[in-house]
Design a protein around this nucleic acid. Structure first.
Lengths: 213, 213
DNA sequence: TGTGCTACGTCAAGGGCGTTGACGTAGCCT
DNA sequence: AGGCTACGTCAACGCCCTTGACGTAGCACA
Protein backbone atom coordinates (compact mmCIF):
# COMPACT_ATOMS: atom_id res chain seq x y z
CA UNK A 1 0.00 0.00 0.00
CA UNK A 2 1.50 3.30 -1.10
CA UNK A 3 1.08 6.75 0.43
CA UNK A 4 2.32 10.29 -0.05
CA UNK A 5 4.67 9.91 2.87
CA UNK A 6 6.08 6.57 1.76
CA UNK A 7 6.73 7.88 -1.74
CA UNK A 8 8.49 11.04 -0.55
CA UNK A 9 10.63 9.07 1.89
CA UNK A 10 11.50 6.53 -0.75
CA UNK A 11 12.38 9.32 -3.18
CA UNK A 12 14.78 10.86 -0.65
CA UNK A 13 16.29 7.50 0.22
CA UNK A 14 16.75 6.71 -3.44
CA UNK A 15 18.60 9.95 -3.99
CA UNK A 16 20.68 9.48 -0.88
CA UNK A 17 21.73 5.93 -1.69
CA UNK A 18 22.13 5.92 -5.42
CA UNK A 19 23.05 9.55 -5.90
CA UNK A 20 22.47 11.70 -8.86
CA UNK A 21 20.46 10.06 -11.57
CA UNK A 22 18.41 7.77 -9.34
CA UNK A 23 15.38 10.03 -8.96
CA UNK A 24 13.19 9.00 -11.87
CA UNK A 25 9.60 7.92 -11.75
CA UNK A 26 10.55 4.56 -13.21
CA UNK A 27 13.18 3.78 -10.60
CA UNK A 28 10.97 5.19 -7.89
CA UNK A 29 8.32 2.73 -8.94
CA UNK A 30 10.79 -0.13 -8.82
CA UNK A 31 12.03 0.93 -5.39
CA UNK A 32 8.45 1.00 -4.17
CA UNK A 33 7.85 -2.46 -5.58
CA UNK A 34 5.11 -1.03 -7.75
CA UNK A 35 4.50 0.05 -11.29
CA UNK A 36 5.96 3.50 -12.02
CA UNK A 37 2.58 4.83 -13.04
CA UNK A 38 1.22 4.13 -9.55
CA UNK A 39 3.05 7.28 -8.40
CA UNK A 40 0.60 9.30 -10.45
CA UNK A 41 -2.22 8.19 -8.19
CA UNK A 42 -0.63 10.32 -5.48
CA UNK A 43 1.11 13.14 -7.34
CA UNK A 44 -0.17 15.00 -10.32
CA UNK A 45 3.26 15.03 -11.96
CA UNK A 46 6.95 14.65 -11.25
CA UNK A 47 6.98 18.38 -10.51
CA UNK A 48 4.23 17.97 -7.95
CA UNK A 49 6.28 15.26 -6.26
CA UNK A 50 9.22 17.63 -6.28
CA UNK A 51 7.36 20.30 -4.32
CA UNK A 52 6.51 17.69 -1.72
CA UNK A 53 10.18 16.74 -1.53
CA UNK A 54 11.14 20.42 -1.17
CA UNK A 55 8.73 20.81 1.71
CA UNK A 56 10.16 17.69 3.34
CA UNK A 57 13.72 19.04 3.05
CA UNK A 58 12.66 22.25 4.79
CA UNK A 59 10.94 20.22 7.48
CA UNK A 60 14.05 18.14 8.13
CA UNK A 61 16.25 21.22 8.29
CA UNK A 62 14.01 22.81 10.91
CA UNK A 63 13.35 19.67 12.92
CA UNK A 64 14.17 20.17 16.59
CA UNK A 65 15.48 23.70 16.18
CA UNK A 66 14.94 26.12 19.08
CA UNK A 67 15.81 29.79 19.41
CA UNK A 68 18.48 30.45 22.04
CA UNK A 69 18.15 34.22 22.19
CA UNK A 70 21.59 34.74 20.66
CA UNK A 71 20.59 35.97 17.21
CA UNK A 72 23.97 35.31 15.58
CA UNK A 73 24.11 31.74 16.85
CA UNK A 74 20.48 31.19 15.88
CA UNK A 75 20.90 32.43 12.33
CA UNK A 76 24.14 30.51 11.90
CA UNK A 77 22.44 27.34 13.07
CA UNK A 78 19.50 27.79 10.71
CA UNK A 79 21.77 28.56 7.79
CA UNK A 80 23.98 25.55 8.37
CA UNK A 81 20.94 23.31 8.81
CA UNK A 82 19.41 24.44 5.53
CA UNK A 83 22.70 24.01 3.77
CA UNK A 84 23.25 20.55 5.24
CA UNK A 85 19.71 19.38 4.55
CA UNK A 86 19.89 20.28 0.88
CA UNK A 87 23.40 18.90 0.49
CA UNK A 88 22.24 15.60 1.93
CA UNK A 89 19.91 15.23 -1.03
CA UNK A 90 21.71 16.99 -3.86
CA UNK A 91 19.59 15.85 -6.75
CA UNK A 92 16.38 16.83 -5.03
CA UNK A 93 17.89 20.11 -3.84
CA UNK A 94 18.84 21.05 -7.37
CA UNK A 95 15.30 20.84 -8.55
CA UNK A 96 13.53 21.99 -5.43
CA UNK A 97 15.55 24.79 -3.84
CA UNK A 98 14.19 27.57 -5.98
CA UNK A 99 10.53 26.74 -5.57
CA UNK A 100 8.25 28.65 -3.24
CA UNK A 101 5.96 26.04 -1.77
CA UNK A 102 3.88 28.25 0.50
CA UNK A 103 3.21 25.22 2.68
CA UNK A 104 3.38 24.70 6.41
CA UNK A 105 7.05 24.00 6.99
CA UNK A 106 8.21 26.75 4.67
CA UNK A 107 5.99 29.21 6.49
CA UNK A 108 7.36 28.07 9.84
CA UNK A 109 10.91 28.61 8.63
CA UNK A 110 10.17 32.13 7.39
CA UNK A 111 8.49 32.99 10.68
CA UNK A 112 11.46 31.67 12.66
CA UNK A 113 14.07 33.63 10.72
CA UNK A 114 12.09 36.86 10.76
CA UNK A 115 11.52 36.36 14.47
CA UNK A 116 15.22 36.04 15.19
CA UNK A 117 15.99 39.24 13.28
CA UNK A 118 13.16 41.34 14.69
CA UNK A 119 13.80 40.18 18.23
CA UNK A 120 17.44 41.08 17.78
CA UNK A 121 16.37 44.66 17.20
CA UNK A 122 16.56 45.03 13.43
CA UNK A 123 13.96 47.51 12.16
CA UNK A 124 11.34 45.85 9.96
CA UNK A 125 12.63 46.99 6.55
CA UNK A 126 16.16 45.97 7.48
CA UNK A 127 14.97 42.66 8.90
CA UNK A 128 13.21 41.85 5.65
CA UNK A 129 16.21 42.73 3.50
CA UNK A 130 18.56 40.69 5.63
CA UNK A 131 16.07 37.84 5.68
CA UNK A 132 16.00 37.88 1.90
CA UNK A 133 19.78 38.00 1.55
CA UNK A 134 20.24 35.32 4.20
CA UNK A 135 17.75 32.86 2.76
CA UNK A 136 18.74 33.25 -0.86
CA UNK A 137 22.42 33.10 0.00
CA UNK A 138 21.89 29.89 1.93
CA UNK A 139 19.81 28.36 -0.85
CA UNK A 140 22.16 29.61 -3.55
CA UNK A 141 25.18 27.99 -1.94
CA UNK A 142 23.15 24.89 -1.24
CA UNK A 143 22.18 24.59 -4.88
CA UNK A 144 25.71 25.20 -6.07
CA UNK A 145 27.20 22.68 -3.67
CA UNK A 146 24.41 20.20 -4.31
CA UNK A 147 24.96 20.53 -8.03
CA UNK A 148 28.59 19.58 -7.60
CA UNK A 149 27.60 16.54 -5.56
CA UNK A 150 24.90 15.56 -8.01
CA UNK A 151 27.21 15.43 -11.00
CA UNK A 152 27.98 12.05 -12.51
CA UNK A 153 31.08 10.77 -10.77
CA UNK A 154 33.20 11.30 -13.85
CA UNK A 155 32.32 14.97 -14.26
CA UNK A 156 32.68 15.51 -10.51
CA UNK A 157 36.26 14.33 -10.26
CA UNK A 158 37.05 16.16 -13.49
CA UNK A 159 35.84 19.43 -11.97
CA UNK A 160 38.05 18.93 -8.93
CA UNK A 161 41.08 17.93 -10.92
CA UNK A 162 40.84 21.16 -12.89
CA UNK A 163 42.05 23.11 -9.87
CA UNK A 164 45.22 21.13 -9.72
CA UNK A 165 45.74 20.30 -13.37
CA UNK A 166 44.75 23.49 -15.16
CA UNK A 167 45.23 26.13 -12.46
CA UNK A 168 48.37 24.61 -10.99
CA UNK A 169 50.33 24.77 -14.23
CA UNK A 170 49.55 28.19 -15.57
CA UNK A 171 52.22 30.57 -16.79
CA UNK A 172 53.23 32.68 -13.78
CA UNK A 173 53.93 35.70 -15.96
CA UNK A 174 50.50 35.68 -17.58
CA UNK A 175 48.56 34.88 -14.39
CA UNK A 176 50.67 36.06 -11.45
CA UNK A 177 47.83 36.15 -8.93
CA UNK A 178 46.70 32.60 -9.63
CA UNK A 179 50.29 31.38 -9.65
CA UNK A 180 50.93 32.97 -6.25
CA UNK A 181 47.88 31.38 -4.66
CA UNK A 182 47.43 28.14 -6.61
CA UNK A 183 48.09 25.90 -3.62
CA UNK A 184 45.70 27.90 -1.43
CA UNK A 185 43.06 27.84 -4.15
CA UNK A 186 43.25 24.10 -4.71
CA UNK A 187 42.84 23.52 -0.97
CA UNK A 188 40.06 26.05 -0.46
CA UNK A 189 37.94 25.01 -3.44
CA UNK A 190 37.63 21.50 -2.07
CA UNK A 191 35.41 22.84 0.68
CA UNK A 192 32.16 24.74 0.46
CA UNK A 193 32.50 28.50 0.59
CA UNK A 194 29.26 28.74 2.54
CA UNK A 195 30.40 28.77 6.18
CA UNK A 196 32.79 31.65 5.54
CA UNK A 197 30.29 33.55 3.42
CA UNK A 198 27.75 33.11 6.20
CA UNK A 199 30.15 34.62 8.76
CA UNK A 200 30.71 37.59 6.44
CA UNK A 201 26.96 38.13 6.20
CA UNK A 202 26.56 37.91 9.98
CA UNK A 203 29.48 40.32 10.48
CA UNK A 204 27.93 42.87 8.14
CA UNK A 205 24.51 42.50 9.74
CA UNK A 206 25.96 42.99 13.20
CA UNK A 207 27.77 46.15 12.10
CA UNK A 208 24.51 47.51 10.73
CA UNK A 209 22.67 46.67 13.92
CA UNK A 210 25.30 48.51 15.95
CA UNK A 211 25.03 51.53 13.65
CA UNK A 212 21.25 51.59 14.05
CA UNK A 213 21.44 52.00 17.77
CA UNK B 1 29.19 24.01 -42.46
CA UNK B 2 29.14 23.71 -38.67
CA UNK B 3 31.68 24.93 -36.13
CA UNK B 4 32.15 25.05 -32.39
CA UNK B 5 31.27 28.73 -32.35
CA UNK B 6 28.16 28.37 -34.49
CA UNK B 7 26.88 25.54 -32.32
CA UNK B 8 27.45 27.42 -29.05
CA UNK B 9 25.80 30.57 -30.39
CA UNK B 10 22.85 28.57 -31.68
CA UNK B 11 22.54 26.80 -28.34
CA UNK B 12 22.38 30.13 -26.49
CA UNK B 13 19.87 31.53 -28.95
CA UNK B 14 17.75 28.41 -28.71
CA UNK B 15 17.69 28.63 -24.94
CA UNK B 16 16.95 32.34 -24.99
CA UNK B 17 14.06 32.01 -27.39
CA UNK B 18 12.38 28.79 -26.45
CA UNK B 19 13.26 28.24 -22.82
CA UNK B 20 15.06 25.65 -20.79
CA UNK B 21 13.62 22.57 -22.39
CA UNK B 22 14.70 23.69 -25.85
CA UNK B 23 18.34 22.77 -25.28
CA UNK B 24 18.41 19.20 -26.49
CA UNK B 25 20.74 17.74 -29.04
CA UNK B 26 17.82 16.93 -31.27
CA UNK B 27 16.41 20.45 -31.37
CA UNK B 28 19.88 21.88 -31.64
CA UNK B 29 20.43 19.74 -34.70
CA UNK B 30 17.17 20.94 -36.20
CA UNK B 31 18.01 24.59 -35.49
CA UNK B 32 21.35 24.06 -37.19
CA UNK B 33 19.70 22.45 -40.16
CA UNK B 34 21.67 19.28 -39.56
CA UNK B 35 21.27 15.86 -38.09
CA UNK B 36 21.42 15.86 -34.29
CA UNK B 37 24.33 13.46 -34.31
CA UNK B 38 26.43 15.96 -36.26
CA UNK B 39 26.90 17.86 -32.98
CA UNK B 40 28.97 14.93 -31.75
CA UNK B 41 31.57 15.70 -34.39
CA UNK B 42 32.35 18.86 -32.42
CA UNK B 43 31.54 18.01 -28.84
CA UNK B 44 32.26 14.79 -27.07
CA UNK B 45 28.89 14.82 -25.31
CA UNK B 46 26.02 17.07 -24.32
CA UNK B 47 28.00 17.79 -21.17
CA UNK B 48 30.98 18.89 -23.20
CA UNK B 49 28.76 21.31 -25.09
CA UNK B 50 27.50 22.63 -21.77
CA UNK B 51 31.00 23.49 -20.63
CA UNK B 52 31.50 25.46 -23.82
CA UNK B 53 28.27 27.35 -23.14
CA UNK B 54 29.43 28.06 -19.58
CA UNK B 55 32.70 29.42 -20.90
CA UNK B 56 30.84 31.67 -23.31
CA UNK B 57 28.69 33.11 -20.51
CA UNK B 58 31.82 33.94 -18.53
CA UNK B 59 33.36 35.55 -21.59
CA UNK B 60 30.33 37.76 -22.12
CA UNK B 61 30.31 38.81 -18.48
CA UNK B 62 33.95 39.87 -18.58
CA UNK B 63 33.86 41.53 -21.99
CA UNK B 64 35.23 45.07 -21.81
CA UNK B 65 35.84 45.08 -18.07
CA UNK B 66 38.79 47.13 -16.75
CA UNK B 67 40.12 47.54 -13.22
CA UNK B 68 39.76 51.06 -11.83
CA UNK B 69 41.93 50.70 -8.73
CA UNK B 70 38.93 51.04 -6.40
CA UNK B 71 38.63 47.45 -5.18
CA UNK B 72 35.08 47.77 -3.87
CA UNK B 73 33.85 49.28 -7.11
CA UNK B 74 35.75 46.70 -9.14
CA UNK B 75 34.37 43.72 -7.24
CA UNK B 76 30.88 45.14 -7.32
CA UNK B 77 31.10 45.60 -11.07
CA UNK B 78 32.37 42.06 -11.66
CA UNK B 79 29.69 40.59 -9.42
CA UNK B 80 26.87 42.48 -11.08
CA UNK B 81 28.20 41.53 -14.52
CA UNK B 82 28.33 37.84 -13.69
CA UNK B 83 24.86 38.03 -12.23
CA UNK B 84 23.50 39.87 -15.26
CA UNK B 85 25.16 37.60 -17.78
CA UNK B 86 23.73 34.47 -16.26
CA UNK B 87 20.32 36.05 -15.79
CA UNK B 88 20.29 36.94 -19.48
CA UNK B 89 20.36 33.23 -20.29
CA UNK B 90 18.53 31.69 -17.36
CA UNK B 91 18.11 28.24 -18.77
CA UNK B 92 21.73 27.92 -19.76
CA UNK B 93 22.82 29.40 -16.43
CA UNK B 94 20.91 26.72 -14.60
CA UNK B 95 22.88 24.00 -16.28
CA UNK B 96 26.25 25.70 -16.54
CA UNK B 97 26.80 27.87 -13.47
CA UNK B 98 28.19 25.16 -11.25
CA UNK B 99 30.74 23.77 -13.67
CA UNK B 100 34.45 24.46 -13.49
CA UNK B 101 35.61 24.78 -17.07
CA UNK B 102 39.30 25.50 -16.52
CA UNK B 103 39.37 27.31 -19.86
CA UNK B 104 40.69 30.67 -20.99
CA UNK B 105 37.89 33.03 -20.01
CA UNK B 106 37.29 31.38 -16.68
CA UNK B 107 40.98 31.62 -15.90
CA UNK B 108 40.98 35.29 -16.87
CA UNK B 109 38.07 35.96 -14.53
CA UNK B 110 39.75 34.17 -11.62
CA UNK B 111 42.96 36.10 -12.23
CA UNK B 112 41.08 39.41 -12.35
CA UNK B 113 39.21 38.85 -9.10
CA UNK B 114 42.25 37.59 -7.22
CA UNK B 115 44.19 40.56 -8.58
CA UNK B 116 41.67 43.05 -7.25
CA UNK B 117 41.75 41.45 -3.80
CA UNK B 118 45.54 41.08 -3.53
CA UNK B 119 46.20 44.56 -4.87
CA UNK B 120 43.74 45.88 -2.30
CA UNK B 121 46.00 44.48 0.39
CA UNK B 122 44.27 41.29 1.46
CA UNK B 123 46.78 38.65 2.60
CA UNK B 124 46.81 35.61 0.31
CA UNK B 125 44.81 33.17 2.48
CA UNK B 126 42.19 35.85 3.10
CA UNK B 127 42.11 36.82 -0.57
CA UNK B 128 41.45 33.22 -1.54
CA UNK B 129 38.67 32.77 1.00
CA UNK B 130 36.97 35.99 -0.02
CA UNK B 131 37.41 35.07 -3.67
CA UNK B 132 35.66 31.79 -3.01
CA UNK B 133 32.81 33.37 -1.06
CA UNK B 134 32.42 36.14 -3.63
CA UNK B 135 32.32 33.90 -6.69
CA UNK B 136 30.02 31.30 -5.21
CA UNK B 137 27.73 33.96 -3.81
CA UNK B 138 27.44 35.56 -7.25
CA UNK B 139 26.88 32.24 -9.00
CA UNK B 140 24.52 30.99 -6.33
CA UNK B 141 22.27 34.02 -6.60
CA UNK B 142 22.55 33.87 -10.37
CA UNK B 143 21.35 30.28 -10.40
CA UNK B 144 18.53 30.99 -8.00
CA UNK B 145 17.35 34.06 -9.91
CA UNK B 146 17.82 32.32 -13.23
CA UNK B 147 15.76 29.41 -11.99
CA UNK B 148 12.91 31.76 -11.18
CA UNK B 149 13.12 33.34 -14.62
CA UNK B 150 13.34 29.96 -16.30
CA UNK B 151 10.11 28.68 -14.82
CA UNK B 152 7.14 28.33 -17.14
CA UNK B 153 5.20 31.59 -17.03
CA UNK B 154 2.37 29.99 -15.10
CA UNK B 155 4.58 28.62 -12.33
CA UNK B 156 6.49 31.90 -12.22
CA UNK B 157 3.49 34.10 -11.49
CA UNK B 158 2.18 31.45 -9.12
CA UNK B 159 5.40 31.57 -7.11
CA UNK B 160 5.13 35.36 -6.87
CA UNK B 161 1.48 35.30 -5.95
CA UNK B 162 2.28 33.02 -3.04
CA UNK B 163 3.83 35.96 -1.23
CA UNK B 164 0.61 37.90 -1.43
CA UNK B 165 -1.89 35.08 -1.32
CA UNK B 166 -0.47 32.63 1.19
CA UNK B 167 1.80 34.87 3.26
CA UNK B 168 -0.51 37.87 3.24
CA UNK B 169 -3.42 36.03 4.84
CA UNK B 170 -1.81 34.09 7.62
CA UNK B 171 -3.13 34.10 11.14
CA UNK B 172 -1.41 37.01 12.91
CA UNK B 173 -1.44 35.15 16.22
CA UNK B 174 0.30 32.07 14.83
CA UNK B 175 2.78 33.97 12.68
CA UNK B 176 3.21 37.44 14.19
CA UNK B 177 6.51 38.24 12.46
CA UNK B 178 5.23 37.42 8.98
CA UNK B 179 2.02 39.30 9.66
CA UNK B 180 3.91 42.40 10.76
CA UNK B 181 6.12 42.46 7.67
CA UNK B 182 3.92 40.88 4.99
CA UNK B 183 3.73 44.04 2.88
CA UNK B 184 7.50 44.56 3.09
CA UNK B 185 8.12 40.91 2.23
CA UNK B 186 5.86 40.91 -0.80
CA UNK B 187 7.62 44.02 -2.12
CA UNK B 188 11.16 42.84 -1.38
CA UNK B 189 10.78 39.33 -2.79
CA UNK B 190 9.92 40.75 -6.20
CA UNK B 191 13.52 41.89 -6.59
CA UNK B 192 16.72 39.89 -6.47
CA UNK B 193 18.40 39.79 -3.08
CA UNK B 194 21.81 39.81 -4.73
CA UNK B 195 22.73 43.53 -4.81
CA UNK B 196 22.09 43.88 -1.09
CA UNK B 197 23.83 40.60 -0.25
CA UNK B 198 26.80 41.74 -2.31
CA UNK B 199 27.02 45.01 -0.34
CA UNK B 200 26.97 43.02 2.89
CA UNK B 201 29.86 40.89 1.66
CA UNK B 202 31.83 43.96 0.61
CA UNK B 203 31.13 45.63 3.96
CA UNK B 204 32.41 42.60 5.84
CA UNK B 205 35.48 42.32 3.64
CA UNK B 206 36.31 45.98 4.14
CA UNK B 207 36.03 45.63 7.90
CA UNK B 208 38.43 42.69 7.81
CA UNK B 209 40.86 44.60 5.66
CA UNK B 210 40.82 47.50 8.11
CA UNK B 211 41.42 45.07 10.99
CA UNK B 212 44.40 43.54 9.20
CA UNK B 213 46.26 46.83 8.97
C1' DT C 1 44.63 13.11 -64.08
C1' DG C 2 43.80 9.56 -60.99
C1' DT C 3 44.02 7.54 -56.33
C1' DG C 4 43.31 7.45 -51.72
C1' DC C 5 42.58 9.74 -47.36
C1' DT C 6 40.11 12.68 -44.30
C1' DA C 7 36.43 15.48 -42.54
C1' DC C 8 31.74 15.86 -42.37
C1' DG C 9 27.04 14.74 -42.21
C1' DT C 10 23.28 11.07 -42.39
C1' DC C 11 20.89 7.05 -41.02
C1' DA C 12 19.07 3.57 -38.10
C1' DA C 13 18.96 1.69 -33.87
C1' DG C 14 19.31 0.84 -28.64
C1' DG C 15 18.00 1.99 -24.23
C1' DG C 16 16.09 5.46 -20.90
C1' DC C 17 12.72 8.90 -19.66
C1' DG C 18 7.68 11.07 -18.21
C1' DT C 19 3.06 10.45 -18.94
C1' DT C 20 -1.53 8.63 -20.28
C1' DG C 21 -5.79 5.87 -20.69
C1' DA C 22 -7.79 1.42 -20.64
C1' DC C 23 -8.09 -2.44 -17.80
C1' DG C 24 -8.50 -5.59 -13.80
C1' DT C 25 -9.44 -6.35 -8.80
C1' DA C 26 -10.22 -6.08 -3.97
C1' DG C 27 -12.76 -4.00 -0.43
C1' DC C 28 -16.42 -1.24 1.35
C1' DC C 29 -21.21 0.81 1.62
C1' DT C 30 -25.90 0.17 1.22
C1' DA D 1 -25.94 -9.12 -3.54
C1' DG D 2 -25.06 -5.23 -6.25
C1' DG D 3 -22.52 -1.42 -7.27
C1' DC D 4 -18.97 1.95 -6.43
C1' DT D 5 -14.44 3.46 -5.48
C1' DA D 6 -9.55 3.27 -4.75
C1' DC D 7 -5.61 1.24 -6.25
C1' DG D 8 -2.27 -0.93 -9.05
C1' DT D 9 -0.93 -2.86 -13.76
C1' DC D 10 -0.21 -2.85 -18.57
C1' DA D 11 0.89 -1.24 -23.05
C1' DA D 12 1.85 2.45 -25.64
C1' DC D 13 3.27 7.30 -27.22
C1' DG D 14 6.69 10.48 -27.92
C1' DC D 15 10.63 12.51 -26.31
C1' DC D 16 15.58 12.14 -24.92
C1' DC D 17 21.12 10.95 -25.53
C1' DT D 18 24.36 8.33 -27.78
C1' DT D 19 26.63 5.09 -31.01
C1' DG D 20 28.51 2.80 -35.13
C1' DA D 21 28.08 1.93 -39.91
C1' DC D 22 27.54 4.32 -44.03
C1' DG D 23 27.89 7.67 -47.83
C1' DT D 24 30.14 11.78 -49.97
C1' DA D 25 32.73 15.80 -51.16
C1' DG D 26 37.14 17.86 -51.24
C1' DC D 27 41.94 17.89 -50.87
C1' DA D 28 46.99 16.06 -51.15
C1' DC D 29 50.05 13.87 -53.72
C1' DA D 30 51.89 10.95 -57.25
Amino acid sequence: MLSHELIVDTALRLVGQHGAEALTVRRLGTALGADPSAVYRYFHSADDLLLAVAEELIARAQHGWRATGDWRADLREIGLRIHASYRAHPQAALLAAHRTTGRAHEIAAVEAILGVLRDAGFPDPEAVRIYHAFVDQSLGFAVLDAAALALPAAAQSADLRVWHAAYGRLDAAANPHIAATAHLLAADMRRSGYPFALELLLDAAEARLAATR
